[in-house]
Every structure is written in C-alpha cells, then in structure tokens.
Design a protein around this nucleic acid. Structure first.
Lengths: 145, 145
DNA sequence: TACAATTAAGTTGTACGCAATTTAATTTAA
DNA sequence: TTAAATTAAATTGCGTACAACTTAATTGTA
C-alpha cells in the first residue's frame, strides 16, 4: 500500500510538535483575552518582566522572533498601555522596550496562568521535566547545523 | 527581583514547544520550496498519500486544521497540479480531495525529506521515541479537558 | 576624516491558523 | 412532509511569522 512509510504523519516527530504547540497556544486564548493579550504578547511581557528593559533585537533573540513580528506586537502593547518604547540614547538605531506600571501590574493578574495551562497538560512532573529537557536538546542541536 | 518565578519563560513548557515547532518547520522550507510546497502543503499531501481520498473534514481531523486553513491550501495544491477535488456524490456538501498522478509522484521526490529533517534533530533514537511519546501524551491529554 | 560596510527597526508582501459568519445540502422531528 | 436544526465548505477578518527590502545610525577602514 504505502511504499514510503517514513512519509506517514505518525512516523514524523515534527507533526506532534506542530500540533501540540498549536493546541497549547490555543489554550492560552481564554486566559489572556480578558486583558487584550495574545500568546505572543504574553511571551513578550514575560521577557520584559524578567529583564526590565531591552532592545527589540535582544527581545527577538530571547523569543526567536524578528522585528517584522515584534514591531507591531510592541506597538499594540504600547497602545494598550502595557509597554513603553524609547530610542536608546547610546545608539539611536535601537529601541528599548519596558513595562509600564500597568504592564507590571499584569504580572500579578496573570500569575495563575502557568498553573492553569499546566493543569491541562496531563504529564507527571518528571515527564514534564523530561519533555522540557528533550525540547531544549532539539533547540540547542539546531544551533550547530 | 522576580516575585513570580512561574512567569519566567524558562519555567514554562509551552515556550520550548512553540520555539521548537517554529524552528523545525522552518527547516522544511528549503527542502519543499523546489516543489512549490509549504509545510502545510506537505502534511496535507502526507495524509492524502496515506488515505488516497478523503473529505476536507476528515483531512481537518487528521491535521487539526479547519476549512478556513484547508480550503485555500487545497486550492493551491490543485492549482499546482498535485491534488484534485470533487464534490461527493453521496453528500453534495462534502468535497473529496485526492492526489493526482503528479501528486503521487511527489512521494518519491520527497522520500528523503524525513531523513534530512531527522539529521538536524540531534536526539538519539531512544530520545526521539521518548519525545514522540510525551508529545502524544500531551495531545491525548488535551482531548479530555 | 570620509566612505564603505554593518547594524537596528520598521515596512511590505505572502502564507498560515482560527474564530465567526454565510450558503447550501442533509437530517431531524413536529 | 415540511420546517427547524445540523452539517460541510467556503469566506471574511485578524493576528502572527518571516523573508526581503528600506531607511537611518553606527562602525570599520582606507
């Protein structure tokens, strides 16, 4: 029937990765929507909370996103009052983004999101750690190829 | 410094999933581009190769995609001569998609793609199997929540 | 110092992915 | 048996992602 078993969906690692990422991202929607946030907005805010202020380039490195994605996201976050942007005085090419007070306040409001997402991921803590480790092994492996 | 450690990117499973899926999908681009295919086209073709002919709905179930995504993808594949579409005679609401001869020929041309992708995923066979199993455990777990 | 090369953001164009809606066909139940 | 409910695809609109390009600032170098 099938001469190319390697070309079956069920034999490829990429498909469950793709399907899993899509589905888990979708689970964030109802949790973030009350704050007018998307998943992309949320991960941007997470980096800003952790680093305080950083350039679009550094934000992009942290998230594997480029300015084509980040510029409109940051503008939207700014329009919603969560983020402020300013030109770096050291280097006028760079734009620095940081949370506003309202942006910092979000942290508390969203503090239960990870747990709520966690509750629909039916893995034991060890399995979750294992999955996490394997994913980073794949990501790190990409860097030298 | 950070009162909400659970809100750090590095403590969330979703981010490596999202980043890994994006990066691995990007690796397909140069392999598929010579045939005018995207990753989405490729996974659609994989299901069609396996099943021969099926409705848009069934294709959507196999790939977790809806008609909003699939209709334009199938039209593009049809325009490129890889797929034919026809109304079901049993149920005039349904559209059946199947590979054309040119679509079947693609199978051989793309037969080395899985291996080439595999070569940039730096996991041992056991690790790959483990990752695969964990991803499907997460996906299956979503279905009852 | 001046000019070429590089770098940073932003812009443009294309392709998803999905929610919501529309249209048409089929099923159900009154 | 007809009217209501359901179902299938297609359409519309929005938000990513990302390649390719533009513009402006900075750096390297002749």
């Amino acid at each position: 029937m099938n001469q190319y078993p390697q070309l079956k969906l069920e034999n490829q690692l990429c498909f469950p990765l793709y399907a899993c990422a899509k589905e888990i991202t979708r689970r964030y929607v109802p949790l973030l929507e009350p704050y007018n946030l998307t998943y992309t907005h949320y991960i941007v805010m997470m980096v800003l909370w952790e680093k305080g202020e950083l350039t679009v380039t550094d934000l992009g490195k942290a998230l594997s996103l480029d300015s084509g994605t980040l510029t409109p996201v940051l503008k939207k976050l700014e329009a919603n009052g969560y983020v402020k942007r300013r030109r770096s005085s050291d280097d006028e090419r760079s734009v620095l983004a940081s949370p506003t007070d309202k942006g910092w306040d979000l942290q508390e409001k969203l503090s239960s999101v990870p747990q709520e997402i966690g509750s629909c991921v039916k893995l034991t803590p060890e399995e979750a750690r294992l999955l996490y480790g394997l994913l980073y092994k794949v990501i790190d492996g990409f860097e030298n190829s």
